[in-house]
Amino acid sequence: MSAHTHQMTRTPLQTAAFVLGIIFLVVGVLGFVPGITTGYGAMKFAGHTSGAHLFGLFQVSVLHNLVHLAYGVAGLAMARTWEGARKYLVWGGVIYLLLWIYGLIVTGPHAANFVPLNTADNWLHFLLGIIMIGLGVAFSRRGAPRRPFAT
């Protein structure tokens, strides 16, 4: 009697989404670690007045960290399928490009400035948007993998 084992293999597209999901989870957790996040005591839930900086560089808040955690969970969940991974990378990248534009336009004490963003955040969001869209497009050029016929 032989046991059937189902080995799940990830496509490069799914692997990219999975790895980015892990990275976002790690960044979200690190945003709550004093020392790695400087000015931890000055962290606000939201808003431009949060004085916390991840790695002393990227301005963060509780909301900002929670968004990173949510992006990470979404990446892991969507990496389970080829189509989900593609959507995560492409549309996630579009969202990051929109966040980059938001960060360029909405600065200082403005009612719409609920996510603390500084110049480093803005340019990281731009790079993430380009990278995510690039990975999503490059790894999906051949289309979804076809399942082999059962024999």
Rank of each mutant, 00 (worst) to 15 (best):
L117F: 13
N113E: 06
L30N: 05
V137K: 15
H53P: 05
G103Q: 15
A16E: 03
H64W: 09
A46P: 06
V26W: 08
S2P: 14
L98M: 14
I101A: 15
G93R: 12
F45T: 02
K87T: 02
T151M: 09
S2C: 12
L54R: 12
L135E: 13
W123G: 00
L104V: 00
G28Q: 08
G51Q: 09
L127T: 00
I36D: 06
G143S: 09
H53F: 12
T49N: 14
F55D: 07
A144N: 06
A79S: 14
L124Q: 06
S2Q: 14
A52F: 02
W91G: 01
F18M: 01
N122I: 00
A120C: 00
Y88K: 02
V94A: 15
T9N: 09
A16K: 04
G129P: 11
L99W: 09
N118I: 04
H48K: 06
I105S: 11
G134N: 07
T11F: 10
L57P: 09
I101K: 11
R10E: 11
S50L: 04
Y88N: 03
Q59Y: 10
F126I: 00
S50R: 05
H48Y: 14
D121K: 03
L128A: 12
W100E: 10
L124R: 05
L117S: 09
I130N: 03
A52G: 06
I22W: 15
N122Y: 00
L124W: 09
V27L: 15
A77T: 07
V106W: 12
H64S: 04
V27K: 05
A111V: 03
S2V: 11
L57G: 03
Y71K: 00
L89P: 01
F45A: 04
